Computed example of a mutant assay.
Amino acid sequence: MRTVGFDNRLIFNFIPFMKSKGAICEYNDKKHQLDFLLANSVLVKIRLPLDMDYDKIKETPIHAEFRNYVLVMIRSGIASVGIFENFECHQHKVFRAYMTRKKQGKSQIKHLKTKGKSRAGSRVRLQETLEFFEEINQRLQEHFEEFRIDKIGISCSDTLIPYFYGGKIKTPFDKQDPRIFKIPKHIQNPTFEELTATNKFLLQSEIRISESGAPYYSEFLEKTAPSDEPQDDLNDDW
């Protein structure tokens, strides 16, 4: 599927347009995404921006007037946590730890699965790993005590998830918390700059168009875009 940015304002016009073509609109709560299907085939997917909710009864997006959320982005040896009050970054912190074996470039957690933790360096890295997650969760505890949290965005590899939820200091939410959503973006280096960029990304919508959905998307653009503006060329990238 081809992925491009989408004007948030056009979402309200796109839904009735697709329904007029016989498509069914389904809301994916976990991904905060609208799927448009025809004959059980997905034509188009739209990731809704974080400042929109979806009214399942009226089957329409609605603007969220106020929202607090945390973004948690974790990679081996570095993590960032930000609390966003009404979509603006209120507080943030970057965490660092000595978790990576320099020669192999592999985290101590992955190394433990094959060769254990007998050497002194390995024990140091393991201890730093545990403290790393304790500091992250302590920060989250503080945010959850101070603020009402409406959404929890997480980017964390499967290898690190057990350490995130399984430390001495617990997360102030469990794995099944309905407020959790997976950040739909690869985070290579979770610095403050990346935290800010990710928040901006989440406040924008994105559309994914299948080959069979391309004609519908082209027709929609022709009907909504001013005649003097060039249309997207959907013949590329398939």
Rank of each mutant, 00 (worst) to 15 (best):
M1I: 00
G5D: 03
D7T: 11
I11G: 14
I15Q: 03
I15P: 04
K19W: 07
K19N: 11
Y27S: 08
Y27H: 13
Y27P: 12
N28S: 11
D29L: 13
K31V: 04
Q33N: 15
L34D: 01
L37R: 08
A39H: 14
S41A: 15
V42Y: 03
K45G: 00
D51Q: 15
M52K: 13
Y54I: 07
E59T: 06
T60Y: 09
P61E: 11
H63K: 10
A64G: 09
N68V: 13
N68A: 10
V70H: 07
I74M: 03
I74R: 13
G77S: 08
S80A: 09
F84H: 10
F84W: 13
N86F: 08
C89G: 10
H92A: 10
R96Q: 05
A97F: 01
M99F: 07
M99G: 07
R101M: 12
R101Y: 14
K102R: 15
K103M: 13
K103Y: 04
K103I: 14
Q104E: 15
Q108P: 14
K110C: 11
K110Y: 12
H111Y: 13
L112C: 12
K113Y: 15
K113P: 11
K115W: 14
K117H: 14
R119L: 10
G121V: 09
G121Q: 06
R123E: 14
R125A: 08
L130T: 12
L130I: 14
E131S: 10
F132C: 13
F133L: 01
E135F: 12
E135Y: 03
E135K: 06
I136C: 02
N137D: 07
N137G: 08
Q138V: 06
Q141P: 06
Q141W: 09
E142W: 01
F144A: 08
F144I: 06
F147I: 00
R148C: 13
R148T: 14
R148S: 13
G153E: 01
S155C: 02
S155P: 02
C156V: 01
C156K: 00
S157L: 02
S157C: 08
T159N: 13
L160P: 01
L160K: 00
K168N: 11
I169K: 00
K170I: 03
K170M: 02
K170S: 10
P172T: 06
D174F: 05
D174I: 01
K175V: 02
Q176Y: 04
D177M: 11
P178R: 08
R179G: 01
I180C: 00
F181G: 03
K182N: 14
I183P: 01
P184D: 09
P184M: 03
I187N: 04
Q188D: 05
N189F: 07
T191V: 08
F192S: 09
F192P: 13
T196R: 02
T196S: 14
T196I: 04
T198G: 06
N199I: 00
K200Q: 11
F201V: 02
L203M: 04
Q204S: 12
E206T: 07
I209Y: 00
S210P: 00
E211F: 02
E211C: 06
S212C: 07
G213H: 05
A214W: 03
P215R: 10
Y216T: 07
Y217W: 05
F220M: 07
L221C: 13
T224W: 09
Q231D: 06
Q231E: 11
Q231S: 05
Q231K: 14
D233Q: 15
D233L: 15
L234I: 06
D236I: 09
D236R: 12
D237E: 12
